[in-house]
């Protein structure tokens, strides 16, 4: 089990190390640069320094988990993961500050087609229904095999020991699936809102596709967890399946985003707080392409951004109630 835990943190570390690559060529640590800046000595040094800090943080975290008593592993694991992420964020910000003097001026010109052609969603959006079908199938299977579910089931959300116990009740059996249903619906909603709330660009289908792919991972993982009591599925294949599914999604998205073949969205640099938070009251857009990382971020000057965040908080809160 310890090997699995270490693998999980290695994966987290690897994702954090890949952050400089998970963006367009014209951006490095959220600073607009020339596409060949990464090959310059300043660019290479910034990437190396960031990776050194992140690797040290990940290694320290893994070391702490390996050395601590096994009964403390489950308690220690979330703060270790959160600590690694916080250090990566600080390292990112450090490099953002260091590279800011190298920022290139992005032409502020914008163009818009005077077209009223409907802004249709891409054809592949119907794939977004797949995760709901997966969750429905698992729920149906549990309903039809109710008698095979133990009266008392282990809710194994810990690595070293079960996180708790649940009774064979509607909430106990379907809670995981209901939470996943909420999460998938929210993700899909964000994906579609992102399509209509962002400017037309080649990144839109890539981001929507990535979000739909992630909903499959969420639904698949929740199916396996919900079916655990019936099939006695151990924890490790679930985690491995999730990690194995996420890697290609990240690699494909990073590859597509780095070669979009269209100029960077000319959002004013002064509206990017710390390079990652976009706040521009003059820009009515709700979603903008991230400057650091894959996907969208919100324009926090748009009131709909806060309504969306409140919705997310509501989903998380109800998730705690469903999984309690």
């Amino acid at each position: 089990m310890m090997k699995l835990l270490i693998s999980l943190h290695v994966f987290l570390g690897a994702v954090l190390l890949a952050i400089p690559n998970m963006t367009r060529r014209e951006l490095l640590f959220a600073v607009p640069v020339s596409p060949d800046f990464r090959q310059s000595s300043a660019g290479r040094r910034a990437i190396a320094m960031f990776r050194l800090v992140v690797a040290a943080a990940a290694a320290a975290g893994i070391g702490a988990l390996v050395l601590c008593p096994i009964r403390l592993v489950d308690t220690l694991q979330p703060p270790v993961a959160a600590g690694t992420i916080v250090i990566a964020v600080l390292a990112f910000y450090w490099q953002y500050r260091r590279l800011s003097p190298f920022a290139v001026e992005i032409p502020r010109k914008r163009a818009a087609a005077l077209s009223t052609a409907p802004d249709r969603l891409p054809g592949f959006v119907w794939l977004g229904s797949g995760p709901f079908a997966l969750l429905g199938a698992a729920a149906l299977y549990l309903y039809l095999n109710w008698d095979r579910i133990p009266e008392r089931l282990a809710v194994s959300r810990g690595i070293a020991s079960p996180g708790g116990w649940a009774d064979r009740t509607t909430k106990g059996v379907y809670g995981e699936l209901l939470f996943a249903l909420e999460l998938c619906a929210l993700l899909l909603l964000v994906g579609i809102a992102g399509w209509y709330g962002a400017r037309r660009s080649r990144s839109r289908p890539v981001i929507l596709g990535g979000i739909i792919a992630v909903t499959y991972v969420v639904a698949g993982m929740s199916d396996l967890i919900a079916l655990q009591p019936v099939f006695g599925i151990p924890e490790w294949p679930i985690i491995l399946v999730v990690v194995a599914a996420l890697i290609p999604i990240l690699v494909i998205m990073a590859g597509k985003m780095s070669h979009l073949g269209e100029p960077l969205d000319p959002t004013p640099q002064e509206c990017w707080k710390g390079g990652v938070i976009y706040y521009n009251p003059s820009d009515p857009v709700l979603f903008v392409e991230k400057r650091g990382g894959l996907g969208y971020t919100l324009n926090f000057a748009n009131r709909w951004a806060w309504i969306l965040l409140a919705g997310l908080a509501l989903v998380v809160a109800t998730g705690f109630l469903l999984l309690d």
């Binding site: 914008r110 818009a112 802004d119 400017r199 521009n280 003059s282 820009d283």
Partner: peptide, 17 residues
């Protein structure tokens, strides 16, 4: 000819409605 809505054109041009 119909022009784009105020909302769509403002979003595309990054200016206020």
């Amino acid at each position: 000819t119909e022009l784009p809505s105020v909302r769509r054109l403002a979003i595309e041009l990054g200016i206020h409605f």
